[in-house]
Design a binder for these strands. Structure first.
Lengths: 217, 217
DNA sequence: GACGTCAATGGGAATAATTCCTATTTGCAA
DNA sequence: TTGCAAATAGGAATTATTCCCATTGACGTC
């Protein structure tokens, strides 16, 4: 059998190196490329077309979910496996909306990642145990109350605002005008019923979208 | 030479497994235990007294920084290396306050972790390159933020802002004019070197002024 | 007791951020 | 095709924030 060609995108070099070794221990898997940011990752995936692209969600610049979305537009058949620390249903939902075929949390047992890579390489779906369990329990029913009403773009902006980015920074990063982000923020505040930046941060914390200060969320 | 005994505490199993392999590739290092939460980690460290305890900061339950603090109380000579995704100076400062001897970010090059383990095992300090660079740049300036530079009134307003009150609400509550509170807020932001409401909340959380979602910092 | 310092208070003007309204384009679904 | 929703962004009005300034009162020092 030919080995499964895998490409890794994760901004944490030590971590990436770690699970690269983990994957490469399997003779059926070979890592053909790595990237530590969304833009490089996007280019590499489109260029090398690996059997599986393993994407972290939290990345500098373009998020893993955005990378997935853009890749799928260009290469609809690309198999994508999301590999993230977030076990929030919202992220899972958005990952699949973006075109991912699998979702594994970083808290999973190591063999889950290997299994996921093997499944996804064949175009099959894979959810790590914890996510599958959660999905069965709460499914998409209680998956995020208000947060569900946000559009993709709004959610993205919401996250960036919550981690402390200014409107100007976000507009630059997303390559859209200041006005767009400002209007987007207004919509978000209205939808989530928060009157100011502070309460927006709190909401993000409550939903585990962001984590702050030694406090495990 | 005897090998360096290391104990790992990280809630992300795949990630932990990854850098365990990374460390164990070195003949001078052997991993003698692992934990995926703060409480187990604390017990294991006190029990096994490794040459180096490698602690993630974000953990379910007790945070890595709390673990460090508690361990140092019981075993003051324990060598602790913080290994976190956060490159924020506030975390670094808190880690060292808690008694850690080293701090390595997960974005570092893999050999930095190995080097850090070796240094810390000898009781020496170690900072990963990115942190050392940041420290040199902003370290003493931003790292040494003291909330006690705030006046009584400023602190009061700071707290109210952090819990999500608007300037108008605060002015009403304190029976002072809107302008007074607005000016006060400007002073606070300048003194604490935060540019927006979000970062003000983060600072408040980090200093334990406010707590969110039952997670005390 | 006069003097300097500083916290607390707020006014005015300039600047920046936010909202509300409107319009266009695009993609998707009935 | 038609219709709807999302994403984009401009203009005008409104608010929020900053920067500069002045006053008052408390406290400590000489």
């Amino acid at each position: 059998m030919t080995s499964i060609k895998v490409l890794l995108v994760d901004d944490h070099a030590v971590v990436r190196e770690g699970y690269r070794r983990l994957l490469e221990k399997h003779p059926s898997i070979s890592v053909i490329g790595e990237a530590d940011n969304g833009d490089d990752g996007y280019r590499l995936i489109c260029d090398k077309k690996p059997d599986v692209a393993v994407l972290d969600i939290t990345l500098p610049g373009m998020s893993g979910i955005e990378v997935a979305r853009k890749v799928i537009v260009r290469v609809p058949s690309q198999n994508i496996l999301m590999f993230s620390m977030h076990d929030d249903m919202l992220f899972v939902k958005r990952a699949f909306d973006a075109g991912a075929k699998g979702y594994v949390t970083k808290s999973s047992a190591p063999d889950q990642l290997v299994l996921a890579v093997q499944k996804v390489s064949k175009g099959e779906q894979y959810l790590s145990d914890d996510i599958a369990k959660r999905y069965a329990e709460e499914g998409s029913s209680r998956g995020g109350i208000h947060l569900d009403s946000l559009t993709k773009r709004e959610f993205e902006v919401f996250r960036l605002l919550a981690i402390g980015q200014t409107v100007a920074e976000i507009s630059e990063q997303l390559h859209v005008s200041y006005k767009t982000v400002a209007n987007c923020q207004s919509n978000i505040r209205q939808k989530l019923d928060v009157s100011n930046a502070t309460n927006l941060v709190k909401l993000a914390l409550d939903h585990g979208i962001i984590a702050i200060g030694g406090c495990a969320v």
